[in-house]
Amino acid sequence: MTTRMREVYSDTLIRLAEKDRNIVVLEADLMAAHATKSFMEKFPERTFNVGVAEANMVGIACGLSARGKIPFAGSFAPFVTRRAYDQFFVSANYAKLNVKLMGSDPGITAAYNGGTHMPFEDVGIMRNVPGLIIYEPADGVSLQKLLTESAYRKGNVYLRLHRGNAPGIYNQNDEIKLGKANVLKDGNDVTLIASGVVMVNEALKASEMLQKEGVSAAVIDMHTIKPLDEEIVLKYAAKTSRIVTCENHQVMNGLGSAVAEVLSEKQPILMKRIGVNDEFGEVGDIEYLKERFGLTAKRICESARSLLVTA
């Protein structure tokens, strides 16, 4: 079943706000994109649209947080990270507050908005914020569960939100927790570690393709990029001795780097990183952009095969 992720975002916040009067929502002229107009209809006094002013929005969220509110502040991922980085870094994180930042349209899903709007670096820059939790759900169920958990967990969070439609991966009764990766498919020859809607689905597809060639590929949904679930990385490093990471992001300082850091220090094995290689984004539809930046099941398979040959 496909879900409209933006609606899950808004509906989950509504449910949280019904129980907790401290939940507030901030937007920067993109409520239409995030379906939060439904939140505003229910809680007009707890919704603050600050106009096209991301830095100000994050600053205001920090003030709300300092007075005990639980602010969920969102904009397109590039603007809410790059443009409000210092506000989030200092006023939210250094000040140890409780701001829930949301950036939408990860990587190539910015599609027709092109290079200015296409964040291949947001996770990278956010990963440098000490103690920050960073997560990117792969479907509606995991979004709803992780978003809910993030609300009750004190501290700053960055949600990388795919706001379009996403095919269902989880069931309501699956356990999905921040910081704990989910094994979607077990395997023995190689492990595909992915995050986000686009790449988790490509990894699942790749695993099926490899299966047909007699290669058993495990697929792990690493929805929480920070703190990374090191335990599962090490477990599958031992089990399959080959890992391919898959991210809709630069290979620098994103999921692939995080996995490489763990492996190189604790259990060096061969790995490959699928992601964008030091390039800016550009306009196009999703299929064009997947090919353009090599974010495809086909390329995941090629990387997996190359590891199997060399090992």
Binding site: Y112, N113, G114, G115, V283, D285, Y288
Partner: peptide, 10 residues
């Protein structure tokens, strides 16, 4: 605004 264009949306 199509893939590879010299006329992007922005």
């Amino acid at each position: 605004n199509t893939g590879g264009t010299s006329l992007p949306s922005h």
